[in-house]
Design a protein around this nucleic acid. Structure first.
Lengths: 233, 233
DNA sequence: ACCACTAAATGAATGCCATTCATTTATTAG
DNA sequence: CTAATAAATGAATGGCATTCATTTAGTGGT
């Protein structure tokens, strides 16, 4: 177990750098924190398509196979990233603000964080919480907020799951192109839909309303907040 | 353009079958409908991991490269499958039942169809409707339902998007393992969450309530229906 | 009737990717 | 001191989507 892992990356592989010889180095080059940081850096620079085990290894100035001493598979890397991102979600209003407001700020923050990381959503959705301590911590804070707000204990998890489902779906929506609903040559066959799309576009142009994805998210979130809020005892 | 494409598959590649010689065959072996059908068959048999271009080609008794005369990339195959699945979504209550009920049956049907096909969700979410005629047709029907129910034109699209986001997120939830929320060794540090999880499990065991994913979906859907319903003029 | 063009197939690459394994070297436990 | 373990390299491996040259068959124009 490495006590204090060495600084990682070291100006990743300058051309002239002497090749490291085989065998265990005196100080470990890798650890989970470093792998996570490098993965995030790589993702922000090249996107999720650019996140390959080979690319990650290069970022860390290490052979690809070295990564497998620390993670069993690429999925584990995604898991590390996911858990780190969850720690960025703002839960601070739980305990200090009314339930409605706490949910509102949590949900917006949660959506915004994962809108940039939608490839993780399939991973999260199936991820046992045991494997993700930060994620578990978030659930604890949110659960306490719901219980303190008077939710019956047996409705808390379902309510959170419902909100989360909406949040994940909405995160995808953020990544959609602006003109996703333009029917093009088919417009003639879909008069009602086409009119609705045009009307929404006109609205968002004239009014000071934000991006379509934000409008839909606000609409759905407020509906969920008031609908779920009615469950409180 | 093939007038009447030949029956496809033909007991896919019996060992003894003579190898087809190179060159264009008299009757086209492939078309989009056949590719779609074979893809669905393959998916249902081997799942989305088993849906490879090579596997699809084998299913159709054809060389992999032949597929590229009909689709530009694998993404196009997914698109064909997506559009076909959308045609299975039940929109029949729009026009014959009250708005609330129509939305309810549509949403359940939509979720159930895509719960088996979550790998398509990232594709759908970014898919311009022009490329998917069945999907466009669904939007038309649903839009008309909203307008007839008295929704202001400029809120229709946002409302549908909000519902869809919830539906997609909930489809993932269906695929989650039952014990996803078991905190295991960390349970001690998350008392509120752990209690809520146990309480929900007890409820669903004692009561006749369905799977957790169904409970959460119903909860969120009813909240959205009543929240969005308030927008009607 | 001929000929150029296009459509639809084969089969052989190509390059990328995650993962595995044998090997080497260093640290640690008994 | 020695055996076990940890952490690195480097060389496979097998699967994957995709491309390209080639072959054959239909089609439209003169």
């Amino acid at each position: 177990m490495p006590a204090v892992p060495a600084v990682q990356g070291r100006a990743a592989g300058k051309p002239g750098t002497a090749r490291r010889r085989a065998g265990r180095p005196s100080a470990a080059l890798l650890d989970k924190a470093g792998i996570t940081a490098a993965a995030l850096e790589l993702i922000s620079r090249k996107g999720y398509d650019g996140l390959t085990m080979a690319g990650l290894a290069k970022e860390l100035d290490v052979a690809p196979s070295a990564l497998y001493n620390h993670v069993a598979a690429k999925r584990d890397v995604l898991l590390l990233v996911e858990d780190h991102l969850t720690s960025l979600v703002d839960v601070s209003d739980f305990g200090s603000a009314p339930w409605e407001e706490a949910v509102r700020s949590w949900a917006w923050s949660y959506r915004n964080v994962f809108a940039e990381h939608t490839p993780l959503i399939p991973v999260i959705a199936v991820l046992p919480v045991t494997d993700a301590p930060q994620t578990l911590a978030m659930y604890e804070t949110v659960s306490k907020g719901f219980l303190d707000a008077g939710f019956p204990q047996d409705r808390v998890v379902s309510s959170i799951v419902a909100l989360e489902s909406f949040i994940f779906g909405s995160a995808y929506d953020v990544t959609a192109p602006e003109d996703i609903f333009e029917a093009g040559s088919m417009a003639g066959t879909t008069p009602n839909f086409t009119a609705a799309v045009r009307s929404a576009a006109a609205q968002s142009g004239a009014q000071g309303r934000g991006r379509p994805a934000d409008v839909a998210f606000e609409l759905g979130l407020e509906a969920l907040i008031s609908g779920l809020g009615a469950l409180r005892g």
